[in-house]
């Protein structure tokens, strides 16, 4: 396994083209049908076909880009669906005609009758057919819905869906966290109190530094896990979800604090993304338990870059 701290040229291409598109969308925009289909028009939901050799890395690159703009975190659910759906079921999603709502009834991300509702029933990815859909407001500005209905077609094991969901959400959270960190750092460099930039105070710089360390590590884990998944090794995916959630959560709190009162204001630079981070971290499907011996990979040291040549007996790993 190789270690990654940058995107490969192939996977970064989708990130760059999406970044140009995302610049045309409002920061922290609510995910409307129009935005969803616009993202689909950029090839977002055709990644699996467009990048057959590094589809997971491309998903990560795309989602980090969207995270940096604070929007479309729900797209992670679409990647999950596309990994378990037949070609016929997948087409409306990859073409942008239908959204995917991945959740656990009765509360699910916003979607309508034309869309796909997906859940996990005892480890099986299963479609849900709503008979009634009512809007529900949530912490983030993304609308949700309350659905009544019935379970319908099982699509197969949920694990591949969860693997890509954890990678996609992890990448989004890292992007969102980095963007909040960047804006907080910019504020700390320019906001003056007591005659100097507040970033010159260690009590301000320290927390920002710690958040940066967490985010940089989480990002490297996302990149490495994405590339590993493209080689068929998904053991880091569950760990990535935890790591990115912690890093993004910490970055959001530090951003609130660095901006002071401005960080609480409804139209301010932090709150919308912070709420969205908070909600997505906790959103269904929940993070999986970590099996350290799998996540850290059996063998000796350097698991991220090399397969161990000799089994280690000293610590039974």
């Amino acid at each position: 396994m190789a270690f990654f701290d940058t995107f490969s040229p192939g996977s970064s291409a989708i990130g760059e083209s999406l970044a140009r598109h995302a610049q045309t969308l409002p920061l922290d925009a609510v995910l409307t049908d129009e935005i969803w289909s616009g993202l689909a028009g950029q090839g977002l939901f055709a990644i699996d076909d467009l990048f057959p050799d590094d589809r997971n890395a491309a998903v990560c690159a795309a989602m980090e880009t969207l995270g940096r703009r604070g929007l479309a975190g729900q797209a992670a659910g679409a990647f999950a669906f596309l990994r378990v759906a037949s070609a016929g079921l997948a087409a409306p999603v990859s073409e942008g005609r239908a959204r995917v709502s991945l959740g656990q009834p009765p509360y699910m991300p916003a979607a309508s009758e034309k869309d796909i509702f997906l859940t996990n029933v005892d480890g099986v990815a299963t479609l849900f057919s709503p008979t009634r859909i009512a809007p529900a407001e949530t912490l983030s500005t993304d609308g949700w819905v309350r659905v009544d209905g019935t379970l319908s077609a099982p699509l197969g094991p949920f694990e591949p869906a969860q693997d890509v969901y954890d990678l996609a959400l992890g990448a989004w959270l890292v992007g969102a966290g980095l963007s909040l960190l960047d804006s907080a750092v910019a504020h700390a460099q320019t906001r003056r109190q007591f005659g100097q930039p507040i970033g010159s105070f260690q009590a301000v710089g320290g927390p920002l530094s710690r958040a940066a360390i967490r985010l940089d590590a989480a990002r490297a884990l996302v990149l490495t896990a994405g590339a590993a998944a493209d080689e068929g090794d998904t053991r880091l995916a569950a760990l990535v979800r935890h790591s990115s959630a912690r890093a993004a959560s910490e970055a959001a709190l530090v951003a609130h604090q660095t901006f002071g009162a401005l960080g609480m204001v409804e139209q301010g630079p932090v709150q919308a993304r912070s709420k969205r981070i908070r909600q997505l971290i906790s959103q269904y499907p929940p993070p999986r338990r970590i099996d350290p011996k799998a996540a850290l990979l059996p063998g000796r040291s350097l698991s991220l870059i090399a397969t161990a040549p000799v089994a280690n007996e000293a610590f039974d790993v």
């Binding site: 701290d5 590590a217 760990l239 935890h242 790591s243 912690r246 350290p292 850290l296 870059i305």
Partner: peptide, 30 residues
């Protein structure tokens, strides 16, 4: 088990030092 996250993060930061990717200079401290 959750401490494995910290182990993996520490490893990632260490590997950044030996990766050829351009450096900001703060990697060793991080």
């Amino acid at each position: 088990d959750l401490l494995a996250i910290d182990v993996a993060e520490a490893e990632a930061l260490a590997l950044m030092i030996i990766s050829p990717t351009p450096k900001c200079g703060g990697e060793i401290a991080a």
